[in-house]
């Protein structure tokens, strides 16, 4: 999942550094993630993992690292499987 997230970051987040060089817990805002880019990142994540991120999870923390994105995707996938 994290390699897919790195690919999405490379494609849609327009960071200042290559996504492959980022640690899982690296601060994406410090890496140049702008608020406009988070919108495209959100749509790409939803499309890739076939999920819909609910409004309550749509926070600055969600986009802060690859770890936090992966945790959210896992949570939503589990919820979908249980439904």
């Amino acid at each position: 999942m994290k390699s897919a997230l790195r690919r999405i970051l490379t494609e849609s987040a327009r960071l200042d550094v290559p996504a492959d060089s980022l640690a899982d817990d690296a601060d994406l805002y410090a890496a140049g993630l702008s608020s406009l880019a988070t919108v495209h990142l959100m749509l790409a994540v939803e499309d890739e993992f076939n999920i819909e991120i609910p409004d309550r999870m749509l926070t600055r923390r969600l986009f802060s690292s690859i770890d936090s994105l992966a945790a959210a995707v896992t949570e939503l996938q589990l919820a979908q499987a249980a439904a």
Partner: peptide
Amino acid sequence: CDFDTPLG
């Protein structure tokens, strides 16, 4: 924390 405030 603003970090956890929904962006909507």
